[in-house]
Design a protein around this nucleic acid. Structure first.
Lengths: 162, 162
DNA sequence: AATAATATGTCAGTGTTGTTGACATATATG
DNA sequence: CATATATGTCAACAACACTGACATATTATT
């Protein structure tokens, strides 16, 4: 395998203090981090006959119990049909359960079952370890910077607690 | 839309200095950042009849001109067939061109055409702006932390220059 | 009480992008 | 000459996103 030659972008904008190269490096690194972040869960999911979309549901319902269907739609930014397919499968197989709302009985509040919590732990074990190590090794200041920059890249905050 | 109630994880590991909540918040934030990072390019791609996979090829070939097919496979971590479909489409439509290797004539070195570079610019305009603003507003120390943590989350480095 | 809006669920159809396994060609290496 | 490598291509399949239509239950409005 030959060494890959990097492009040397001719013109720099100069107006932001961050050059083409620095931005590209950040974009690239985000891609790699995300790619490796989901690689191991993907393998586990296949043994359950699930996909990445199931993981996202499991993660967010685990993080925000009593979340409704429309809140989940808002977070995932997918269509009702895309969510419905994976969510009803998770409910059917006993990983997620619904509870009719008390204030508004049209709403379905979502919760992980015990089985669902176990799956959540299994799926996120590698991801947690990855974050733990990176956070630990980089140190608290780096972690603050990491969280700050990520937050600023997010378009609009969904109405999350905390 | 009701406020979402956040889970209060019962037990903290305590052995890493980073609790369940902090790790979950990082994982969540990575998800949102990535989600918003690819949203706008996805829209543009649809007008070309392309998908996210085309963008990744355009990005990496733009960043590492003369890259070979197997290097691209290594980076994207997908199968030859998955790549072949999008790459041959990009070549057929004149966004990417191939050059037979001189040392090894089996290799195909990849380059963006002028048309390809224009598309690359169009696709990454929003992404660049997003990074520029986040980097600018968070400041250089935060950026260093961001880059450091991301790097530590990546499994193994592909043989990239720089 | 009638009407409109909301929350959810489901149908059929379509497209992108990932997978596997098999096979082919050109070229390089032993 | 035999084997390995780099690339390309075929068919089939699965996951997951989309659209648009439609249905039901419930709540809000007039």
């Amino acid at each position: 395998m030959d060494k890959i030659r990097k492009d040397d972008p001719a013109q720099e904008t100069g107006d932001s203090g961050f050059g083409e190269e620095e931005l590209r490096r950040g974009m690239e690194r985000l891609f790699f981090a995300y790619r490796d972040f989901i690689a191991q869960p993907d393998e586990i999911l296949r043994t359950y006959g699930f996909g990445r979309a199931h993981h996202r549901v499991i993660f967010f319902v685990g993080r925000y119990p009593s979340m409704t269907v429309s809140q989940l739609l808002e977070i995932l930014q997918i269509t009702k049909q895309s969510l419905s397919r994976v969510l009803s499968q998770l409910i059917r197989e006993g990983f997620v359960e619904q509870q009719q709302g008390v204030d508004d009985r049209r709403q379905r509040h979502l919760y992980l079952t015990e089985k669902g919590r176990k799956l959540e732990q299994e799926l996120s074990a590698d991801q947690r370890l990855r974050f733990e190590r990176a956070f630990q090794d980089a140190g608290p200041d780096a972690v603050d910077g990491f969280m700050d920059v990520l937050q600023r890249m997010i378009s609009r905050h969904p109405p999350l607690a905390g």
